[in-house]
Design a protein around this nucleic acid. Structure first.
Lengths: 173, 173
DNA sequence: CTCATCTAGTAAGGAGCCTAACTAAATGAA
DNA sequence: TTCATTTAGTTAGGCTCCTTACTAGATGAG
């Protein structure tokens, strides 16, 4: 399991060590604990999703790109538009497209009027793949939450929303 | 901002597209939404932390390793022990150590009795660095949550705990 | 003692992310 | 028209992660 976050027993040791080492308190150890919890969860959830996509030789990034190409063909997708839509650099998109094209999922065609641009589309094979991935993927996901009550789901969603806001304000400061 | 998750407006389009494309319901769209929320949050929080560590030329992985070497010297740290403690492969640890040694933070010494092993310690420079990173890092973290109430913190922590369990049972199935 | 096996660690190569620097094409102000 | 600037996209090289395959040393059964 991909973590790079200390395991539980070691996390505890570190926390108690911290309390000795940084006793001058402006530090809320509740916040530190929460942060560790969040970091661990984030690692694990992303890893879970990656494992998911790996079943079909995809990854989060490859899946997202193919999802966009599949569902919004009117958009005349280009690498730059994909980069903006997914929040990743142009160079990263280039790399992902290179492999997606190599694997026969995506086609790169020159744009008719603007010769700088590249028009991106899913190949037939790519479309077929997505047709089988999508139902499996999303029913798999929804099965994870089967044992949670509506109320729990709501609480979790609210908490994630709060964290989202916290992180956004932190990122912009 | 590193995401590789579609932005909000596109996420909405995808969701509505999904409802047409996969109408045979065993799918709880609440769950799908929650998953997207979790994925986005995970990406962003990890990215925030990375930006954090980058202030001192570190990364999550480098910081974790140095934290372990600093706080638990009795442990006679070796690459294998680090890999176990952090949940990452031996090969990954080798790579991280290579760079940490190159940057003068960590020392690799041959083990006295078992010549297969490598004894790992922080260099003086590494210790000094951590002495300045730790207080700054953790006070920065705790400042993020200043505007949250105790009650909110508690709710968030519980939600993360629930998600943690959900993910763990999903990973083991 | 010997030899198969286990353990510690590294190497090679791939993927997904980044930044910085580049080419080629379009645009627009003088 | 011309030439600086902007835009689209790729390349090169770095980091962190992975898997697979290897070397060297320790261990233990016969």
């Amino acid at each position: 399991m991909k973590r790079l976050i200390p395991n539980e027993s070691i996390k505890c040791s570190i926390l108690s060590m911290l309390k000795e080492r940084v006793p001058d308190i402006d530090i809320d150890f509740g916040a530190v604990k929460l942060t560790m919890q969040l970091a661990t969860l984030s690692q694990q959830s992303l890893h879970l999703f990656e494992g998911h996509f790996a079943q079909w030789g995809l990854s989060q990034g490859r899946f997202t790109i193919m999802m966009l190409l599949l569902n919004m063909p009117d958009n005349e997708w280009t690498p730059v538009k994909l980069a903006e839509a997914t929040g990743v650099t142009k160079a990263t998109v280039t790399g992902l497209l290179k492999n997606l094209e190599r694997d026969g999922h995506v086609l790169r065609q020159p744009h008719e009027t603007d010769r700088r641009k590249t028009r991106l589309t899913l190949s037939d094979a790519g479309k077929t793949l997505m047709q089988s991935v999508i139902p499996a993927h999303f029913s798999q996901i929804s099965s994870y939450y089967k044992h949670l009550t509506k109320k729990q789901m709501k609480q979790i969603s609210e908490s994630l929303e709060l964290l989202q806001q916290t992180i956004n304000s932190a990122s912009n400061s």
